[in-house]
Design a protein around this nucleic acid. Structure first.
Lengths: 188, 188
DNA sequence: ACCACCATGTAAACGGTTACATGATTAC
DNA sequence: GTAATCATGTAACCGTTTACATGGTGGT
């Protein structure tokens, strides 16, 4: 499953331009699937070439023509097929946790700054997930899947936030103590 | 931050071969950083070329020579520098949640199978994280960072497990109801 | 018989990010 | 004057996955 499939999926919610699709990605999939313009535009071009979406240009003054994409019947079938057959992978790649893993190699101020940065990034993300689950940014009443995904995000990010908040001081203290130990021995 | 950095990090725990490093990755970083042989061996070769690790071959009968890598002083400095400067990214890419998002396009049996598969995959993962946090697979007493990362994994995976278990039936019912509605109207 | 474990490596293919190119409009 | 919004696209680059290549040992 790649950006192409996600584009097909977004287009089930109505015809959209590449630009709009990008924003829909950010609203709806922000916490579990990222995509940049550099992957979306080529994906749409390829889908168009394969006849899975159709495209009509809308002229605009002093701007590139807007290209509105629609899901074709073949595109819908391809999407359903993909959804029926792709295995449910779930990958996390966290440089944050790598940094935490090697906490004993870092000064406490750096640890504090890293954790604070994560908290500052996750807090608004939870807020946005909540907004999205309430139906913002999408015409229709939020369907069950949307609510499930949003609920998952809220639950998991909530747990992450709680965990880092509750263990920040403990980690910093423990690292400080471990660093102090050999010095104390040497000073004996 | 890439596999190279992680290799340097693992080597702070003691000299190891590429093969052993791979297994250490699976034990320690399983839930937040994946790496295959195809990325580890070239990474070690590159680190060796850069003088960040040293390597001594150990002859073996009827097997390729074992190559034991050690962190050099320059390697340690490079690692510390990397840990001090890399921003704490944290990315999730979940085809599972994409599938859930489009639940209304899938039959209930498929939804149930997907959720059950995730539960079956996460349950042993939590168990392994717990084992690792207790100090298994690593000579030293687990240091604070290891425990923090493991605790994070336990908290977050625990929340994920609880969430999917508690909302599985609800999702499947809601999707079934939504699918039944138009039929009921048509039948009126 | 067959599979898992040990042990290293290469190379093609893949998919995505980043940076670049263009350029008017509107709001602070 | 500076930044954000609208709007599309290309191309170089990056790192990883996947598949292949080799082959003895030990367990069920």
């Amino acid at each position: 499953m790649d950006v192409k499939t996600l584009c097909l999926g977004v287009l089930t919610e109505g015809d959209q331009t590449g630009y709009e699709i990008k924003h829909r990605f950010e609203e709806a999939f922000n916490h579990f699937f990222g995509a940049s313009f550099g992957s979306i535009y080529p994906a749409l071009a390829e889908l168009s070439r394969q006849g899975l979406v159709s495209c009509q240009s809308v002229e605009q003054t002093k701007r590139p023509d807007k290209k509105v994409y629609s899901l074709t019947e073949r595109g819908r079938r391809a999407l359903l097929d993909e959804l029926m057959t792709t295995p449910p992978r779930h990958k996390v790649r966290s440089e944050f946790l790598v940094l935490m893993y090697f906490a004993h190699l870092l000064p406490p101020e750096r640890l504090a700054a890293i954790i604070d940065e994560m908290i500052a990034r996750w807090e608004p993300l939870v807020a946005e997930i909540e907004r999205c689950a309430a139906g913002a940014g999408c015409d229709m009443t939020p369907n069950p899947g949307m609510r499930f995904a949003a609920g998952y995000g809220r639950a998991v990010l909530g747990a992450a936030l709680t965990y880092v908040r509750e263990h920040k001081a403990e980690l910093i203290r423990a690292v400080g103590d471990a660093a102090a130990e050999p010095v104390a021995l040497a000073g004996d």
